[in-house]
Write a protein that binds this DNA or RNA. Structure first.
Ligand code: SF4
Ligand code: SF4
Lengths: 151, 151
DNA sequence: TTCAAACCAGACTGTTTAGGTCTGGTTTAA
DNA sequence: TTAAACCAGACCTAAACAGTCTGGTTTGAA
């Protein structure tokens, strides 16, 4: 259940990034601290954060009292940055990727639809930064009208 | 590669539905015919079409010269109808589903973002019907600017 | 210098999903 | 009666998902 659903690891990565965006950027937050506050399995989160480090979004400090901090300001880190650090480029269908392709593509009539979805999704992820979430601990609950009803 | 990517079976289902939308609704198209024209594995497509039938989107005729046809007019069949016939309700994250939930939800600050994605995605799928694809065999190729760049 | 607290790297595991295929029906027009 | 078609569900292989485990390396402090 849940087509086109974001993997848990991305959700976890975003939770971690959001947590760090609330902390003093000079301070290093330990893995245990982040995992505890955000309710994410500790070792799993550790692996996920490595991706954020390789993506240049998070910097780490080793040794006692070490930990993690954002590598740049929250306003400079978008959802897209976080997602692509883990998953690589977003492609809502195989034909929306440079790498993959589709032999049915030449005569395909629904390319425009996927293109529209792709554009809208990437646009939101690119536009939204960690700084945009600083406020409002629980917003947008009323718009459940957008939830699609069962088949 | 390809986060939030639509499964092949959905793409196949849409191809089949689109093919049927181009045919005389009185005529039954055999599985072999659809599979051949749309380049979809025959037996796999058969299983997929059963979902469309159960979803009330396609009707079948058995026996020799049997086959499939749309159960209603192309303008009355949306992408959402097809997708949900196969996959059930669309939910871009676990918290966007009635069934699933998330214990982190109460203090979550990114609900609004997922809600926006959910709304936009479902809106396109709900708005787009098979009738909207009757024309333009190859549109929207120029808008590759929406393709997200690598991590 | 030694220790331990932290991060780092990658192998490993169990479960589910994806993408099909295969077997054996049932229906029905000729 | 036959065979062309659909129908139902078991089956299969590979990959993805969600984690865990083991064993490092770094580094501040006692
Ligand atoms: S059939 Fe069309 S929409 Fe589907 S993957 Fe191929 S090109 Fe893209
Ligand atoms: S953490 Fe927030 S966004 Fe992620 S699943 Fe839970 S409620 Fe949804």
């Amino acid at each position: 259940m849940g087509v086109m659903q974001i993997p848990r690891r991305v959700d976890y990565a975003l939770r971690a990034a959001i947590y760090l965006s609330h902390q003093d950027p000079e301070r290093s937050c330990s893995l245990a601290e982040i995992a505890r506050h955000q309710g994410v399995p500790r070792k799993f989160l550790e692996k996920i954060i490595q991706n954020l480090i390789r993506g240049g979004l998070v910097k780490s400090k080793r040794g006692p009292d070490g930990g993690y901090a954002l590598a740049r300001s929250p306003g400079e880190i978008s959802f897209q940055n976080v997602i692509e650090a883990l998953e690589g480029p977003i492609a809502v269908n195989v034909c929306m990727s440079q790498h993959l392709s589709c032999d049915h593509l030449p005569r395909c009539t629904m390319l425009g639809v996927w293109n529209e979805i792709q554009r809208k999704v990437v646009d939101v992820f690119a536009r939204t930064t960690l700084a945009d979430l600083q406020r409002s601990p629980c917003q947008a609950l009323a718009s459940s009208s957008s939830l699609s009803s069962a088949a």
